[in-house]
Amino acid sequence: MQRDEFILCELLYQFADDNFILAYRGSEWLGLAPHIEEDVAFSSINQDMMGHAVMYYSLLEEIGAGNMDDLSHSRKPQNFRNAILLELKNGSGHYLENPDYDWAFTVARNFLFSVFKQVRLEALTQSSYEPLKQTAVKILSEHYYHFMHWETWFMQLMSSTKEARERMEQAVLRCWKEFAGVISIGMYSAEMNKRKLICSEADLRKAWLDKMENVFQKLKFKIEEPPGMESGNGRNGEHTDDLTEALKVLNEVYGGDKEAVSW
């Protein structure tokens, strides 16, 4: 593989893996969402996000990175490039009997990421790689509705009862401690910028922070410290046991019989 293709693959893996693992975390809420309408809506969003992952894995397949199914199901955890925040289990468990499910954390994570995803997609509409530019345009049209969904949940819970506000603030702070890992584009960022595949990490950070500051001002909420990267940088292959466990579940069927087909 030529250097240009390698750098492009490193970037595409980030987009594919982000959507793949967060869609899986979302799917774990099936039957557990706060109400039946949310169960249906959230399931639809997760299906769309898995479709976005497929689009990126397809681009990887087209440039010779490997079979799309193998790319999503056969790589080792250290070869995944998703942000660590997105692989974490669905909650801190501060308020629930089940430590793996916390709706406040799920809303905060999805909203903060949806804001960033919009920023990133808008940047990708200017990418020098035409297939990536076209893919970003397609995904943007769907993502608009995802963004509105999570914005509604976020604003309502942050403006609700004292308890809801406290839970949401704690969830936002937890996400904030890892969000620099979402903004990061990894160790090859300079080469990605040089090839004009995506704008600089600094530009992504500023655009996201500006949008978040606008939201926080409306809610009279403020975070003094910059977003952190407490658990490492997933863009460079650093991950938690949460990803290992998630991939084990995701790969059970595919790893058990790669020749299996549906009828």
Rank of each mutant, 00 (worst) to 15 (best):
residue 2 Q to D: 14
residue 3 R to N: 06
residue 3 R to E: 10
residue 4 D to W: 01
residue 4 D to R: 10
residue 5 E to A: 11
residue 8 L to Y: 06
residue 9 C to R: 14
residue 10 E to A: 01
residue 12 L to R: 03
residue 12 L to S: 03
residue 13 Y to T: 04
residue 15 F to C: 08
residue 16 A to W: 08
residue 19 N to F: 02
residue 21 I to H: 02
residue 21 I to V: 15
residue 21 I to E: 02
residue 21 I to F: 04
residue 22 L to Y: 03
residue 25 R to N: 07
residue 31 G to E: 03
residue 31 G to A: 06
residue 34 P to D: 01
residue 36 I to S: 06
residue 38 E to T: 04
residue 38 E to D: 11
residue 40 V to I: 15
residue 48 D to G: 09
residue 50 M to I: 14
residue 50 M to T: 12
residue 51 G to K: 01
residue 55 M to D: 11
residue 58 S to V: 01
residue 59 L to C: 08
residue 59 L to M: 13
residue 62 E to K: 15
residue 64 G to D: 04
residue 66 G to I: 03
residue 66 G to N: 03
residue 71 L to D: 09
residue 72 S to D: 03
residue 74 S to I: 00
residue 75 R to M: 09
residue 78 Q to A: 04
residue 78 Q to W: 00
residue 79 N to G: 03
residue 80 F to Y: 11
residue 80 F to M: 11
residue 81 R to K: 12
residue 81 R to S: 07
residue 85 L to W: 07
residue 85 L to V: 14
residue 86 L to D: 06
residue 87 E to A: 08
residue 96 L to Q: 14
residue 101 Y to P: 01
residue 101 Y to M: 11
residue 101 Y to N: 02
residue 102 D to W: 00
residue 106 T to C: 04
residue 111 F to E: 14
residue 113 F to P: 01
residue 115 V to G: 07
residue 115 V to Q: 07
residue 117 K to Y: 02
residue 118 Q to D: 12
residue 119 V to S: 04
residue 121 L to P: 05
residue 123 A to C: 11
residue 129 Y to W: 09
residue 136 A to Y: 07
residue 139 I to N: 07
residue 139 I to M: 13
residue 142 E to A: 13
residue 142 E to W: 10
residue 143 H to Q: 14
residue 148 M to K: 13
residue 148 M to Q: 12
residue 150 W to H: 13
residue 152 T to L: 02
residue 153 W to P: 01
residue 156 Q to V: 10
residue 158 M to V: 05
residue 159 S to V: 12
residue 160 S to W: 00
residue 161 T to I: 10
residue 162 K to N: 08
residue 167 R to E: 11
residue 170 Q to E: 09
residue 176 W to Q: 11
residue 177 K to G: 12
residue 187 M to Q: 15
residue 190 A to M: 05
residue 191 E to R: 08
residue 192 M to F: 00
residue 192 M to A: 03
residue 193 N to A: 11
residue 196 K to P: 00
residue 196 K to Q: 08
residue 197 L to T: 06
residue 199 C to S: 04
residue 200 S to L: 04
residue 201 E to F: 02
residue 201 E to C: 02
residue 202 A to Y: 01
residue 203 D to T: 13
residue 205 R to N: 05
residue 206 K to I: 12
residue 211 K to M: 09
residue 211 K to G: 01
residue 217 Q to R: 12
residue 218 K to W: 01
residue 220 K to H: 15
residue 221 F to Q: 10
residue 225 E to V: 07
residue 226 P to N: 03
residue 227 P to E: 03
residue 230 E to M: 13
residue 230 E to C: 09
residue 231 S to F: 11
residue 231 S to W: 04
residue 231 S to Q: 08
residue 234 G to E: 02
residue 238 E to D: 06
residue 239 H to A: 10
residue 239 H to P: 12
residue 241 D to F: 05
residue 242 D to M: 06
residue 244 T to Q: 10
residue 246 A to T: 05
residue 250 L to K: 08
residue 252 E to I: 14
residue 254 Y to C: 15
residue 256 G to R: 03
residue 257 D to T: 12
residue 258 K to V: 15
residue 258 K to C: 15
residue 260 A to H: 11
residue 261 V to I: 11
